[in-house]
């Protein structure tokens, strides 16, 4: 059950934020498994640039542990403010304070449980 369900039309685009290549590979696999197209960036700044340029991003799948000037939860809050329709799937080594996760955000613990992650992306993207 690959993306074949919706052969016609472009697949939803999921922006993946991950600076660790191996984890990025796995996250890309999850996105594709969910029938979406993955766009991987390594920094929060790059993610914001993409979000400012492109309008077809439906979901951001971000690792809160990515180091950078704007880390994790702050980026999530910014996205919720500037691009309210975009859905958030978040992951990280340590569960953040649940009160800080923006509305409609989903947090998936590490190590990943593939089924849970894929289901969350699929639900938001379609």
């Amino acid at each position: 059950m690959m993306a074949g369900d919706r052969d016609d039309g472009p697949r939803p685009v999921v922006l993946v934020l991950q600076d660790e290549p191996i984890l990025a590979m796995t996250m890309r696999d999850f996105v594709e498994e969910a029938g979406c197209e993955a766009l991987v960036v390594r920094t929060a700044e790059a993610a914001i640039r993409i979000l400012e340029e492109r309008t077809d991003i439906r979901v951001v799948f971000a690792d809160l542990d990515v180091r950078g000037s704007m880390m994790g939860i702050k980026l999530a809050a910014l996205i919720r403010d500037r691009w309210p329709p975009i859905e958030l799937v978040l992951t990280g080594a340590l569960p953040p304070n649940l009160d800080h996760i923006p509305a409609r955000g989903v947090f998936c613990d590490k190590p990943f449980r593939e089924a849970k992650v894929v289901a969350a992306i699929r639900e938001f993207a379609t």
Binding site: E20, I22, L23, M25, T26, D29, D65, A93, L94, K110, P111, F112, E114
Partner: peptide
């Protein structure tokens, strides 16, 4: 935990 996540990822790949 990051390492464990990478171990599963590697296993996956």
């Amino acid at each position: 935990k990051n390492t464990l996540a990478m171990v599963t990822s590697i296993a996956n790949q």
